[in-house]
Computed example of a mutant assay.
Amino acid sequence: MTTVTFRADEQLQRLLVELARPGETRTDTIRRALQEASSFERRERMRLEALALSCDEVDRAESRAVLDDVEGARAW
C-alpha cells in the first residue's frame, strides 16, 4: 500500500470536513472521494461515447438492422 501526503489549505480542510461522513476518518474521506471521482470519470466517458454513437447515422442504422433481426426471433 502506498502512503500519500499532501498539504491541505483552509479551503481543502473545509471541503474534507464537508465531505466526511459521520465517523469517517480523513483517510476514509479522501479514499472515498478518489473512488467516486474515478467512477464519475468512467461514467462521463461512457456518456460521451453514447452521445457520439447516437449521432452516428451508420451505427444507428446497423443497430436498427440488428434489432429487426432479433425481433423476428422472439419467442413471444
Score class of each variant (00 low, 15 high):
39 S>F: 05
45 R>G: 02
47 R>F: 08
23 G>E: 03
37 A>I: 10
42 R>G: 02
8 A>V: 06
14 R>K: 08
27 T>M: 05
41 E>Q: 11
23 G>K: 08
72 G>K: 06
31 R>S: 13
35 Q>K: 13
6 F>S: 09
31 R>G: 03
16 L>H: 01
55 C>E: 14
21 R>Y: 06
15 L>P: 01
68 D>Q: 14
35 Q>A: 10
70 V>G: 02
69 D>W: 02
52 A>P: 00
43 R>C: 02
4 V>F: 11
36 E>V: 02
76 W>V: 13
47 R>L: 05
14 R>M: 04
25 T>K: 10
61 A>T: 05
49 E>S: 14
13 Q>H: 09
8 A>I: 07
21 R>W: 05
16 L>E: 00
2 T>Y: 02
30 I>E: 01
40 F>N: 04
56 D>A: 04
64 R>Y: 11
42 R>K: 12
4 V>L: 10
38 S>L: 10
22 P>K: 12
12 L>K: 05
35 Q>G: 03
24 E>D: 09
27 T>L: 08
17 V>C: 00
71 E>S: 15
61 A>Q: 15
1 M>Q: 15
30 I>D: 00
2 T>W: 02
56 D>R: 01
30 I>F: 07
12 L>F: 07
60 R>T: 10
54 S>N: 15
34 L>M: 13
44 E>P: 00
22 P>C: 10
55 C>Q: 12
24 E>A: 03
62 E>A: 12
39 S>N: 06
3 T>F: 02
70 V>L: 15
18 E>A: 12
35 Q>V: 04
62 E>G: 03
51 L>C: 07
15 L>K: 01
24 E>W: 01
57 E>G: 05
4 V>R: 14
16 L>M: 05
75 A>D: 12
21 R>L: 14
49 E>N: 11
53 L>N: 08
27 T>S: 09
24 E>C: 04
62 E>R: 08
3 T>H: 05
45 R>D: 11
40 F>G: 03
66 V>E: 13
71 E>K: 15
48 L>S: 07
54 S>E: 14
68 D>N: 13
65 A>M: 06
4 V>W: 05
62 E>C: 04
8 A>S: 13
5 T>I: 14
4 V>A: 11
11 Q>E: 14
69 D>Q: 15
42 R>E: 10
39 S>Y: 09
6 F>A: 14
44 E>L: 12
4 V>C: 07
37 A>Y: 12
41 E>T: 09
64 R>W: 07
72 G>M: 09
21 R>E: 12
18 E>I: 06
3 T>A: 11
74 R>L: 15
12 L>G: 06
66 V>D: 07
47 R>H: 06
57 E>S: 10
33 A>K: 00
35 Q>E: 11
50 A>T: 06
39 S>E: 08
49 E>G: 07
13 Q>L: 13
32 R>E: 02
24 E>I: 02
16 L>G: 01
45 R>K: 11
64 R>C: 09
17 V>R: 02
30 I>Q: 01
73 A>I: 10
48 L>D: 03
55 C>T: 11
71 E>A: 15
